[in-house]
């Protein structure tokens, strides 16, 4: 794989375990790396170049969505790359809060973000159902509001 001597940090697994995200320490800044498991084959990311350092990657069930914190000029931003469409969703955050860590629910419906601001750290949850299609395990029906789950 050729990654033996490179620092690898911040691992995240897709819900089905078929995709591994890690942050690789490189000259250009910490960069997220996606790999298929167990082959180790590298999966392309289209939208995240020149937004290093990357931190706190988190994957949905099938690895369709990759949420992470990127650097945009002087600001940290939370973004979600939809690997199926190539689209990059940017999540606006309230006030002057700075994202530190995040965790995307495997179905992609919610995200928890650890934020720093005003001398205090907090965790806030956001509903993403208007933004993302669910990424569910194969064979599960998609249920909408008012419908009973399986």
């Amino acid at each position: 794989m050729g990654w033996g001597s490179v620092d690898r940090l911040d691992p995240a697994l897709s819900g089905n375990g078929r995709v591994l995200a890690t942050v690789v320490r490189r000259d250009m800044g910490d960069t997220v790396l996606l790999q298929e498991q167990p082959s180790g084959a590298i999966l392309p990311l289209r939208q995240l170049r020149r937004q290093q350092p990357h931190r706190s990657p988190s994957l949905s069930w099938n690895g369709r969505y990759l949420a992470l914190i990127v650097q945009q000029g002087p600001q940290r931003q939370v973004v979600i790359e939809d690997r199926a469409t190539g689209r990059l969703h940017r999540l606006p955050l309230p006030g002057e809060l700075v994202p530190e860590r995040l965790s995307l629910a495997p179905d992609g419906r919610r995200i928890a973000i650890a934020l720093e601001g005003g001398g205090r750290s907090r965790v806030q949850l956001f509903d993403l159902s208007v933004l993302l299609e669910p990424d569910l395990p194969a064979g599960l029906p998609v249920t909408g509001p008012g419908e009973a789950g399986p």
């Binding site: 606006p92 309230p94 530190e100 860590r101 995040l102 650890a114 750290s121 965790v123 949850l125 208007v130």
Partner: peptide
């Protein structure tokens, strides 16, 4: 994205938090 206001309020009241 829509903040889950009620839940966020409860989390905030529980104290400083990290590493979700």
């Amino acid at each position: 994205p829509r903040p889950l206001v009620g839940l966020n309020r409860r989390l905030e009241a529980a104290g400083p938090a990290a590493a979700p």
